[in-house]
């Protein structure tokens, strides 16, 4: 195989980039400091392509494609920031805000929340969609952590980190559609879960204040994810 099979060149927002075959558009954008918004994707976890915020335009492609799940190709021309993409992103973030009950001013993650930051980046000041105001539960049965369904955006990072990194698979999603929610074991109080090791990885990968440590007050919950690339690297090395 010649080296040209391994190296791909492409254009992202007009900039020439080179990439290794198999890398995703998001990988390459990251290496080149081109910001692409995303919520479900997290380096070190498997890709689900669910939040649709990283959709990009690719010249010649009929559909928009998720940067996190689309491998680079030779000569690809990618646009990450058209007016159309921006307006879709604003609407998708609005959908999340109106789907749950997100009140930043009283949230432990105020100031450290990825959803909040995204709304600021996109310049969202008010909602075009009506709020749903669903009745949702808060599970404080775990001795160290709390799950607040009101703030959950169903990104499934907790599900993936628990399954792929911790190996416990305490979390999963139940139901479907707008009634989906994350659960521990047989949809039982988190504190009574038999499989939870209490490692707290789920809390720290959660992009919002849906999962937090007990005893934190408004704006006090800062997430620490330094462990994730480290653990991923060690695991790859072992295999």
């Amino acid at each position: 195989m010649s080296s040209t099979d391994h190296v791909k060149t492409l254009k992202i927002d007009g900039r020439d980039c080179s990439a290794r075959a198999g890398e995703t558009i998001l990988d390459v954008a990251r290496e080149n400091n081109i910001p692409i918004l995303r919520l479900c994707e997290l380096e070190g976890l498997s890709t689900v392509g669910a939040c649709r915020l990283c959709l990009v335009e690719i010249k010649g492609a009929r559909k928009l494609l998720p940067a996190c799940a689309t491998a680079v190709d030779e000569g690809m021309e990618v646009t990450t920031n058209s007016e159309r993409l921006q307006s879709y992103r604003r609407m998708i973030v609005e959908m999340l805000f109106t789907e749950g009950n997100h009140v930043c001013s009283v949230c432990v993650s105020n100031g450290h929340c990825e959803l909040q930051a995204m709304a600021q980046t996109l310049g969202i000041t008010h909602m075009h969609l009506p709020y749903r105001y669903p009745k949702k539960q808060v599970d404080a049965s775990h001795e160290r952590f709390v799950l607040d369904h009101n703030r959950c955006i169903l990104c499934t990072r907790c599900v993936r980190v628990c399954d792929e990194i911790e190996g416990a698979h305490t979390w999963d999603v139940m139901g479907r559609g707008i009634d989906s929610k994350v659960i521990t074991d047989l949809n039982q109080p988190w504190g009574s879960s038999e499989s939870c090791t209490g490692c707290g990885k789920c809390v720290h990968v959660c992009p919002t204040g849906a999962l937090f440590e007990k005893g934190r007050s408004v704006a006090e919950m800062e997430k620490r994810r330094q462990f994730l690339p480290y653990l991923t690297l060690m695991r790859e090395e072992r295999q």
Binding site: T98, V173, R176, G177
Partner: peptide, 13 residues
């Protein structure tokens, strides 16, 4: 199925 946001919330709206 509820996996992606546009379908999950969009069909509701």
């Amino acid at each position: 199925c509820g996996k992606c946001i546009p379908c999950r919330v969009g069909t509701y709206q």
